[in-house]
Write a protein that binds this DNA or RNA. Structure first.
Lengths: 349, 349
DNA sequence: GGCCCGTGTGGTATCGTTTCCACATCAGGG
DNA sequence: CCCTGATGTGGAAACGATACCACACGGGCC
């Protein structure tokens, strides 16, 4: 909490910038009039407004948001904390948020936590401290969201959900999508299907697991037809795990990878083992990223529109700011299966 | 300039947060003492310091950076403006910056301009307005950098350079890298080599072109051995252009793509035309991104360590803040050719 | 003629912090 | 005994903008 705030600040050197006071003086009006002229709030005659604006440009006046924010007790900034900027899914999310922020004249503070709860909490504190107008997070736990909400700042949880009830959310229907894509595998005749996944503590992982299980069950397959393999969320270690899985005598004939990184790991594992996709192994996954259309065969996957999720998250925040008292709500976006060539009937025995 | 600043701000509702005044009251000391205790600047007895800290946590006190920043005339935030968050190169750059910011207790404001100069200028104004401690840009023109520098905020230009002399820079040796990778092609015996590139107005494009030309010239090839094709920087339109290029009777036997997006376009073009890489067409490029190791054959490319560039940029800013008067300098990082399987001798005639 | 309202302007308190200055105490040295 | 310097503490002035209030003026309405 409130760590020493670092070493003494070194203010930028050089001549100090023009303030609104100087603008007012040069335009021959009072401070308050100048402020009204520039912000457009309150009465100013057209003539005066012009004079003030001219004075402002001639002085290269840039309003000081730190003062404005202090006075108004809010800044026109949204805080965004995503797990990991290296993951293409989060990048698209951030890109969507960034776009939509810009369209609404908000700036974006971005923090990526590398998947550590501690970092997320630090980011949360920074955001509160800067009096951001709202925060978008891919939460690691309920702590960060609660902390922020307790300080009166609206939060929207994206991708996963923890604090449902106390803040808004934007997610996809993970369960249904996982069901669909798994169902397609059972329909093709697969009797032994692997699910490679990194976690169950969050709604994403849990729902994908549920959807997977449901599809297996509805196909009338025995409990052990679904092989669930958990792995850390990085390609090399997941790849290692998957090689082991695929080396088993009773190896699955199809794998559902729960996100793009795990999909990459499966793909690389298959390649090093010289397993042909889809003839010897079917692969389907979650997240639609670039390489999936470039490898051969291209990969069948569940496409979430991460950019749209980001935009929606911003819209949700804007709504919330306008109507603070409205009960919390969650937007569930669609995620659709994109059929490509990476799944096929299981190899004949 | 200073657009109306949007609609009236709606301050967050709910009970106002604790201020340092309340912390001071609860600890039974004066405001100034509380401030000293929390920031660690100036004299405070150990006992008092403890009391104040206890009071702060018990009130869930979070210092208000908007007030702090106003008073200190700087914020602990760096502004970052990259061309396009969807381009993996810029993402890595942003990731590196983000990391290094965090390590030094800075926050990061991120704007992506989609490659439009106008947006870059808007971002610049926002940064100045928020009194960021420094700005990192991939400049579109010299305007943004100059604007920011004129307002007394240090800037470091990354990837490309415009305002050299008036601000610091972090780049790679584009010319040398382009030379190396082109030279490898001439050594393989290619006599007709294409350069696909999107611009020459920036140092990146220009230097890559120079390196390319130099390699062609040194190989003793005629002027027209190097075929320079310019294209817009998006995959579909570049792909279209390249298909036309490769349809010519005297089509090049090798192509050097000046960045990862153009490389993707070349790759896709070759694929749609059923041109085998590397047997019928050699492909080398700039930027090392994920898919290049996943397609077969994998792609030979110039790897720039974008993460390191980002980190270096932050370090450069920190140095500059410490020593504002030091003459501007540019850090040139190495970029190395990663040999994979996408180049080979030209097909026999 | 008195009143009110719309328009336009200026004065000033205020946001929450940091930091400069003044002041107080106490020890030790001349 | 007085001065100096180190250690602590409190008072109050900034920082730069906004927004509330008061006020002034002119015209229309009763």
């Amino acid at each position: 909490m409130a760590d020493p705030a670092g070493p003494e600040p070194i203010p930028a050197p050089g001549k100090p910038r023009a303030t609104i006071k100087e603008v007012a003086a040069r335009a021959g009006v009072s401070l308050s009039t100048a402020s009204r002229a520039l912000t457009g709030r309150g009465y100013v005659s057209a003539a005066v407004r012009e004079r003030v604006k001219k004075a402002a440009t001639s002085l290269a006046y840039v309003p000081d948001d730190t003062a404005r924010n202090l006075r108004q007790r809010v800044s026109r900034v949204f805080g965004v904390a995503v797990s990991d900027l290296r993951d293409p899914f989060y990048v698209d999310l951030a890109a969507g948020i960034s776009q939509q922020c810009r369209r609404n004249n908000y700036a974006m503070m971005l923090a990526d936590g590398g998947g550590l709860e501690q970092r997320e909490l630090e980011a949360a504190e920074t955001f509160v401290s800067l009096r951001v107008a709202g925060v978008i997070l891919t939460p690691m736990s309920k702590n960060a969201s609660e902390f922020i909400v307790n300080h009166g700042v609206p939060v929207v949880e994206v991708d996963r959900q923890f604090a449902s009830g106390s803040c808004d959310g934007v997610v996809v229907d993970n369960r249904r999508a996982a069901y669909d894509v798994t169902h397609a595998l059972t329909e093709l005749g697969h009797r032994r299907i692997g699910l490679v996944i990194d976690e169950f503590t969050w709604t994403t992982g849990r729902d994908r697991l549920y959807g997977f299980r449901q599809a297996i069950a509805e196909a009338g397959l025995p409990e052990n037809a679904g092989v669930v393999i958990t792995s850390r969320l990085d390609v090399p270690s997941a790849q290692h795990t998957i090689v082991k899985l695929l080396s088993r005598r009773d190896r699955p004939t199809a794998i559902f990878a729960a996100n793009n990184l795990l999909a990459e790991a499966v793909w690389r594992a298959a390649e090093t083992m010289k397993l042909q996709i889809p003839d010897e192994l079917s692969l389907v996954c979650f997240d639609d990223v670039r390489w999936m259309t470039m490898v051969r065969p291209a990969i069948t996957t569940v496409a979430q529109d991460a950019v749209a999720m980001g935009e929606t998250a911003v819209d949700t925040l804007l709504q919330r700011i306008r109507r603070p008292a409205r009960p919390a709500y969650t937007v569930v976006l669609n995620a659709t299966v994109v059929e490509r060539g990476s799944s096929a009937p299981p190899p004949a025995r």
